[in-house]
Amino acid sequence: MQIKHIARIIAIATALVGAQAHAAAVNLISDGGFNIGAAYNNYNYANGFHGTMTGKGSPWTFTDASGVANHAGAWGGLASIDSVAFIQSYSGFTSNTPTVSQSFSSNASSYIVTFDLAQRPGNRESLQVTLDGQVLSGGLLTPASSAVSSYSYTVSGLTGSNHILQFKGVNNSGASDSSLFLDNVSVTAAVPEPETYAMLMAGLAMVGAVARRRKGKQAA
């Protein structure tokens, strides 16, 4: 193997690493900020309790007491700064399993899931987040307050090209009416760790050393 051939391999490997890093930065989720689904100064429910999500064009799927609030003053004005998804548990509804979900396509096996979450003032609503049925965080998330908190999780070992991200409200406190607010959802393909790159380059260097040794023997 010639040195220039090895250099070509290294260049290709470097280009592939760069391309993978660029691809990983692309958000695989559409409308992660929930800007589609409710008119200004309004909020719409999937179950039609107030407004309706039907035909609003959102790429998200909403069930039961969930929907989108757009600068609405309800729920303590928490949705007044931006469009958010709300996930509500309310004893007045016969069905009480609110979910917000979206499907996406990718052939990667590992993903980084990030999102913002806030509690309705004075509430203790919980959230279960799953990607292809795999529970993130190992259980339930319960934001401490109405202050917005950011969360990030890495999910690995997934197969196939079609995936589903789901947020499910869980009324862990037993309150008759409690809500969570979800925003800035992102799913990106996870790139290999720096250690993986180091192993790749070390392997290429080893190949080069072997090639040089063989070339030296042939010259002798």
Rank of each mutant, 00 (worst) to 15 (best):
A13S: 13
S109L: 06
L140S: 05
G203H: 09
T94A: 14
K168T: 03
T154V: 10
A23H: 12
G133M: 04
Y45G: 06
A21S: 12
H50C: 04
A23R: 15
Q134F: 05
G133V: 02
N47A: 06
M199C: 04
Y43G: 05
H5K: 14
M199V: 10
I29F: 09
G48H: 07
G48A: 08
A11P: 04
S186H: 09
Y151N: 02
G160E: 09
S83A: 15
V155Y: 06
S156P: 03
S106R: 10
V170C: 02
G133H: 07
A220R: 12
N47H: 05
K4H: 13
F93Q: 13
A175F: 09
T130F: 01
A118P: 06
S126D: 01
S105V: 13
G55T: 09
A21H: 06
W60L: 09
K217T: 12
G76I: 03
A190G: 05
V148L: 03
L180G: 05
P194T: 08
M53N: 04
H22V: 07
P121K: 05
F86T: 03
T154H: 03
A46V: 02
F93D: 13
R212I: 10
G37Q: 05
K217R: 14
H163T: 10
S150N: 14
G57K: 13
Q88W: 02
N47Y: 04
M1Y: 11
P59V: 03
I87F: 01
